[in-house]
Computed example of a mutant assay.
Amino acid sequence: MGSMSIWHWLVVGILVMLLFGKGRFSDMMGDVAKGIKSFKKGMSEDDEAKTPPQRIEAPQPTVVDADKQTDKVS
């Protein structure tokens, strides 16, 4: 029960090849790569959507001379 024999590994290898096969395994790896690529694309689109809007600065009020203000009040 300690170590696995060569026969055990041969049986496991044959079962893996029967279940997955050469074509199925490569198809699965291609699907995983497509999934990772679409995940990265989605994350980059999400980052673009979270950028804060540009702030528009209001014009600074001008300083009015004190003489002009007193003329308007009286």
Rank of each mutant, 00 (worst) to 15 (best):
W7L: 11
F25K: 00
D67T: 13
M43Q: 14
F20T: 08
A33E: 01
T62F: 13
F39P: 00
K72E: 09
A66T: 08
V64C: 05
V63E: 05
M4C: 01
K34N: 04
K37R: 14
K37A: 15
W7T: 10
K34H: 02
R24G: 15
M1N: 04
G2P: 02
T70M: 05
L19S: 13
P53H: 01
T62E: 14
E48W: 11
M1L: 09
A49Q: 13
E45Y: 03
L10K: 10
K37W: 14
G30F: 13
W7E: 10
Q54K: 04
T51A: 13
S44C: 00
K22Q: 06
D67N: 11
P61C: 06
P61A: 09
V73I: 07
G21S: 00
G23M: 01
D46Q: 13
K40Y: 10
D47F: 14
M43W: 12
G35V: 12
A58K: 06
D65Y: 05
A49M: 14
D65I: 02
M1Y: 09
P61F: 07
T62M: 11
P61Y: 04
K34S: 02
I6Y: 04
T51F: 03
G35Q: 05
P52V: 06
L15C: 06
E48M: 12
K68L: 10
V16R: 03
Q69W: 15
S3L: 03
A33W: 04
P61L: 09
K68F: 09
I36M: 13
E57F: 06
E48H: 11
G35R: 04
V32G: 03
L15E: 02
V11D: 07
A33H: 03
S3F: 01
L15K: 08
K34V: 03
S74E: 05
K72Y: 11
L10I: 15
Q54V: 06
A33P: 01
L10F: 15
K22E: 02
V32M: 12
P53L: 00
I56C: 01
V11G: 07
S5H: 01
A66Y: 10
F25N: 00
Q54N: 03
V63K: 08
M29K: 12
M17N: 06
P59D: 08
Q69Y: 15
V16P: 00
V63L: 03
